[in-house]
Design a protein around this nucleic acid. Structure first.
Lengths: 185, 185
DNA sequence: AATTAGATAGACCGATTGATCTACTGTCAA
DNA sequence: TTGACAGTAGATCAATCGGTCTATCTAATT
């Protein structure tokens, strides 16, 4: 049998799910109820709701997902980058898709001092490094600028698909990603 | 002297400013205070906070801004489209920039029945028509798909610039917009 | 001058927010 | 057995939320 995860893990899992489906403004009560955890445990482990939300973003493993998708696409940098947009098309086509967790946190949390902002920035910087590395291997003349373009495309897909998923923005972006890759022919 | 606008206009102005700088979760009290309007007037004119927020989006005139920017760029469709991204670069470089009002509303308001969602959709559909018209004049072989690409770029710029404004995402997107325009050579 | 509609001021409501607190339970090690 | 500790359960707190209410005032219409 599988041992039930500890309160800390249960809190993270519940918060991860609820903050995505309901937004970061879910009540603490709802998270506690779904995690089946005592109120005190939340403040013991994370100091408060802000700390929990930030830790959800930090431990989300979003970068690993991108890495895995690219690794499954093989060795060719071109195929690896394009595979990201194929995956985005799958993700944004699901009914449960509700936008990018990081962008949503950035736009929803008004307070500039909220610890979540640092996690969002760290994530996007990490993604930038990831893409720049691929472009470097591909022989792109300006991997940094090219990665900026890819990030705009990714964020654009995730933002636009919330309102107009039927437009299949990931496919539209895929074609433009080919243009980015063509820069380093 | 200029006559003071009526309560309805003052409410819209205050809500427009506060929902952008503080997010749509600003309290009704803050809006009433800044508008210097009685509580009752809000419910008389808009039925409630939801109605006010939706009307702010509907009456924002965002499409007119895009039209104006393009008109000031002259007649050439290519120049008109690229001018949009030059303007986006200016907007996203301002310290007061806090992201796209429509995307923020879409991501922040969890309730699918919120009247704001219809306004967001109407705005983006209108923008799509606007861009498709330019591409048609430009001789683009698939104006609808091309407009989808431009919208992804625009949303991407506005989403990405919140976290990484120094990357100048509008300039990165501008180069890709040229690729979109080149499709209809 | 009388009537009426719109605006103002502010008390008030129930619900919910995030957070703190005390008291109790179970487990494991010394 | 004792003590330490993490977790549970739940009362409780002040603050805030959106919304309704009554009462008063004002300005335009009749």
């Amino acid at each position: 049998m599988t041992t039930r995860p500890g309160p800390r893990e249960r809190l993270l899992d519940a918060a991860r799910e609820l903050t995505y489906s309901q937004g970061v403004h879910v009540g603490v009560d709802a998270i506690l109820k779904q995690a089946d955890v005592a109120r005190r445990s939340l403040y013991q482990h994370f100091g408060g709701k802000d700390g929990l939300v930030a830790e959800v973003l930090r431990s989300d493993g979003g970068l690993d997902r991108y890495r895995r998708v690219m690794d499954e696409a093989g060795d060719d940098p071109r195929e690896r980058v394009l595979a990201v947009f194929d995956e985005l098309d799958r993700i944004t086509s699901q009914p449960s898709f509700r936008g990018c967790r990081y962008t949503a946190a950035e736009l929803t949390l008004t307070d500039p001092g909220h610890p979540a902002h640092a996690e969002v920035r760290a994530f996007k910087e990490g993604l930038h490094r990831l893409m720049a590395a691929e472009l470097t291997r591909h022989g792109h003349p300006a991997p940094g600028a090219g990665a900026d373009q890819l990030l705009v495309l990714i964020d654009g897909v995730l933002a636009h698909a919330v309102t107009r998923p039927d437009a299949r923005p990931a496919l539209a972006a895929r074609a433009l990603a080919e243009a980015v890759l063509a820069s380093g022919a």
